[in-house]
Design a protein around this nucleic acid. Structure first.
Length: 857
RNA sequence: GCCGGAGUGGCGAAAUUGGUAUACGCACCAGACUCAAAAUCUGGCGAGGUCAAACUCAUGUCGGUUCGAGUCCGACCUCCGGCACCA
């Protein structure tokens, strides 16, 4: 140890030590309680950015804390190494995606090690390696067996820039999640995973995690799954045996239905119009709507004009016995509900707008109810049913003009009318969901091949499990065109049928990379297993994940897929719980000013506002960089990068280091117990007031830091450590002359400080710990310090005295002072007495140990 | 439009959940050391007011509840996110 703080040599020394001693390897079958600390695995772009540094520093702080608390901590890392950038590099620069990926992984592994993140490197995984993606394929086949993976032709989201399909989650808002290009609709044969099968559970099981996942993530998931309770109602078509089924959440408004409106893509249109003279006109309209949709993708700048056409067909409302016209319109979605709605203009804004445009009747069937009087409040505008209202009335109320149902409350009618429809065979109560099945086919090379074979004789056949993995070929033509590069690799495509042995062809699509990340953290538990994705017994020791940390950008992608995957794994007996992640933290973005603007945006190479972690490490050290990034803001806030703050972190570390250097000789001569082992120990010596104050601050700090760690309030922990250190300034004892009692207090304070600093700046903590006389590294010898409430207690309290709620004075009091004593002390205070003079004391509020408020008139 | 979240010094932010507002750090100012600068150390630092104090005003705005409000209630303003014809 040098007298001066040189981060570089200290950090290298301990990184080597950790590597040689395999310090952070987790052991299975360990009697200690487990803690699974997980951060979202990175895509190996080749460079860590500051957002990564933040993410992994948070996770590492928690991993260190839990280790020092005596937990058996699993803290693994791996690579989300399939995906577009590798293929783009192949297209643009002709490199092999595998080599490119492996090189990037090597670069980033080096960066992680220079940061000193305490990973168990023996469990490292990478999605692009056959021993990993074999199990993607295995899971796919398990789903296929159960009908949860299926192929169908459907309009899908197509990113024109990347020439590939995107899932709904990846094209949310009508733009590609990766490149931001506007998404188009294309009709393609695609593989889907039946996530809709689990829609109900994805909503219901939120109960299990709602106190420990951020509300904003859960809200987005609830919205995305979009559970909606209502009813299906059949409308028989006149002069036909067909029925049109609609979905509605407002069956109570059905007497106000003045039309049925079909989506332009509705499959029934053809059949209904067979004999109609209007056929050509309607079909032309439907085609127009469809083509508009295809070119526009999902982007709707401002609300689109509603357009429709009357088909001339009539359908029967079984509740009212009335026949109403069937329309086709552009505002009805095929994908939701049944692709058809009953139009109730009086009570639905969209139907209202449509009805106004086409002069459809607007019939009011719900009146507002006044809760005070439990009576109907007549809206003068609707007294005459035929007069248009200014708006639709969309609230619940009381039914009117609804035959026998009139007079009922909406809430009751909704239940009873669905029941009635079911009993009479023209409907049923139903729950629908917004979420659609997960499209996983990608027309790309750099992913796990879909393990399916097409035989002319036998049709579609699953690759037998013994033939897995279906390996990616070494070479392919990367043209960037729409078809998968695999289609051009003859010895990949051409194979034999597993059933008949005849000539057959392989599926040439690969799977969405979100398949890889849906289950990767189970593989960490058993990463070398070559006969299963993981051994359920081993996984059971570690999972579910205790704390997961990552960005909230994956709220409806990765975080919903992985919940789905876990439920599937439960159903095939691999795990025994519903939810994979107990606690989720979504850390805020690290942003930087975009040069020449006032905008703060996430650091990125293309914006030119990135900060290279390696440069930070070189200039300030990994310890200071990590300390600063955790101190600068609460973990969930956006962090606006600034270089000036990091120097404060360096200064702090240097001051602590210098203090340890100043005392280490005296302390190691006087090698005592470490605070964790004997925090209440007698200080065997006289203790000065300064030493007592230092011990008090030490124990107060331990208590605060420990409780803040449970909530991951890392910024206030750092502040508390700085405060503890500042107490040394007030103490100011001389190592040469200090009494045994003073030395004890210093040892306790410094050792506690070093231990509590370890989660933030582990290298310097190790170095100082060694200097304080402990050999072998922190992890072997150290335990988190224990706060002693007795020592943390103040000897004297300063009690604020208020008059009429305004602070006027303070008195000193012992902590055990009684309410009456405090009251007397306050009233006898000179300052307070002079303020009371000439006034009547109405009452005196005494809050024990906190304050006194004298109320005057 | 709908649904969330947030507004506290020059800046990042604290505040044991209704009890001393601005902890900790950055920036800034002054002093010590130095021939000098940097580094380091010491002190100061919400606004007004005063030689100094007293005192007054301050947590987006306006009102309310309370002995007491950054915290609770009501209305509004602003910013940031998400969703967007979901029947």
């Amino acid at each position: 140890m040098d007298e001066k703080y040189f981060p570089e040599s200290i950090e290298q020394k301990w990184q080597q030590h950790w590597e040689q001693t395999k310090a952070f390897q987790a052991t299975d079958d360990d009697p200690r309680p487990k803690f699974y600390c997980l951060e979202m695995l990175p895509y190996p772009s080749g460079f860590l950015h500051m957002g990564h540094v933040r993410n992994y520093s948070i996770g590492d702080a928690l991993a260190w804390y839990k280790r020092l608390q005596g937990f058996n901590v699993l803290h693994p890392i791996g690579w989300d190494s399939f995906g577009q950038p590798a293929e783009q590099a192949a297209i643009k620069r002709g490199v092999n995606p595998r080599d490119w990926t492996e090189e990037n992984i090597a670069l980033m592994r080096g960066q992680f090690k220079r940061l000193g993140i305490s990973y168990d490197w023996s469990r490292e995984i990478a999605a692009h390696r056959p021993d990993y993606y074999k199990w993607d394929q295995w899971f796919f086949l398990k789903m296929y067996e159960r009908g949860l993976a299926y192929k169908k032709k459907s309009p899908v989201n197509w990113c024109p820039k990347e020439s590939t399909v995107l899932s709904n989650e990846q094209s949310s808002g009508g733009v590609c999640w990766r490149c931001g290009a506007e998404v188009e609709k294309r009709d393609l044969e695609q593989w889907f995973l039946r996530i809709t099968e689990y829609a109900g559970q994805l909503v219901d099981h939120i109960k299990q995690i709602e106190s420990s996942w951020p509300e904003k993530v859960l809200k987005r998931q609830r919205d995305w799954v979009g559970r909606s309770e209502g009813a299906y109602i059949d409308f028989p078509v006149k002069n036909s045996d067909k029925k049109i089924r609609v979905f509605t959440t407002r069956i109570d408004t059905i007497f106000g239905a003045t039309a049925i409106v079909l989506s332009a893509e509705h499959p029934l249109i053809d059949e209904l119009l067979e004999a109609s003279p209007l056929k050509d006109e309607v079909m032309a309209f439907a085609r127009k709507v469809k083509s508009e949709k295809a070119t526009r993708g999902r982007i709707v700048e401002e609300e689109e004009q509603k357009e429709g056409i009357n088909t001339g067909v009539l359908a029967l409302n079984s509740f009212s016995g009335e026949s109403i016209p069937v329309w086709v319109a552009n505002y009805v979605l095929l994908e939701y509900g049944t692709g058809a709605v009953m139009s109730v203009p009086a009570h639905d804004e969209r139907d209202f707008e449509f009805a106004q445009k086409y002069s459809l009747p607007i019939r009011r069937v719900i009146e507002r109810i006044s809760h005070e009087q439990e009576s109907i409040v007549h809206d003068p505008l609707s007294a005459d049913q035929s007069i248009a209202m200014p708006h639709a009335f969309t609230d619940y109320g009381i039914l009117v003009n609804s035959g026998d149902w009139s007079g009922k409350l909406s809430q009751d009618a909704i239940v009873e009318m669905a029941k009635y429809a079911a009993e009479h065979g023209f409907g049923e109560a139903a729950v629908t969901y917004r979420i659609r099945d997960w499209g996983v086919s990608r027309q790309r090379f750099w992913g796990a091949p879909v393990p399916i074979i097409y035989c002319e004789k036998c049709g579609m056949e699953a690759v037998p499990e013994k033939d897995l993995p279906v390996q990616l070929p070494d070479h392919a033509e990367f043209t960037g065109s729409g078809e998968s590069p695999l289609a051009g690799v003859a010895d990949f495509v051409n194979t034999t049928c597993p059933k008949c042995g005849g000539e057959a062809k392989r599926d040439t699509d690969t799977m969405d990379t979100f398949v890889d990340s849906s289950w990767y953290f189970f593989r960490y538990c058993d990463p070398k297993n070559d006969s299963a994705a993981f051994d359920p017994a081993v996984a059971k020791q570690w999972t579910p994940v205790d704390q997961y940390i990552g960005g909230d950008s994956h709220a409806v992608m990765h975080l919903i897929y992985t919940r789905f995957w876990t439920k599937f794994m439960r159903d095939i007996g691999l795990v025994s719980f519903d939810e994979p992640v107990k606690k989720l933290l979504t850390q805020g973005m690290v942003t930087n000013r975009v040069e020449g603007t006032d905008e703060w945006k996430a650091m990125s190479k293309s914006l030119g506002n990135g900060v290279d972690p390696d440069e930070m490490i070189a200039a300030f050290g990994a310890d200071a960089a990590r300390l600063f990034i955790l101190f600068a803001a609460p973990v969930e806030n956006e962090l606006r990068w600034s270089e000036t703050g990091i120097e404060g972190a360096v200064r702090f570390l240097r001051r602590v280091y210098t203090m340890v250097w100043r005392w280490h000789e005296r302390l190691s001569n006087n090698a005592g117990v470490s605070p964790g082992q004997n925090s209440t120990g007698e200080s065997n010596g006289e203790s000065s007031a300064g030493a007592r104050a230092l011990r008090r601050k030490t124990h107060q700090t331990i208590a605060k830091v420990t409780s803040d760690f449970e909530e991951l309030h890392l910024n206030t922990i750092v502040a508390a450590l700085m405060e503890l250190f500042n107490e040394f300034g007030d103490f100011n004892a001389d190592p040469g002359t200090a009494s045994a009692g003073d030395v004890f207090a210093v040892r306790e304070a410094l050792e506690s400080l070093v231990l509590m600093l370890a989660p933030f700046s582990p290298h310097i903590a190790e170095e100082m710990w060694e200097k304080l006389g402990h050999k072998g590294g922190l992890l072997q010898s150290a335990r988190w310090p224990q706060a002693d409430p007795e020592l943390a207690r103040c000897e004297e309290l300063e009690i604020p005295i208020q008059v009429n709620g305004k602070l006027r004075s303070r008195v000193l009091a012992a902590p055990e002072v009684t309410e009456a004593e405090l009251r007397t002390a306050a009233l006898n205070d000179e300052k307070i007495r002079s303020l009371i003079e000439g006034h009547e004391v109405v009452k005196v509020i005494v809050v024990p140990q906190r304050l006194v408020n004298v109320v005057l008139r």
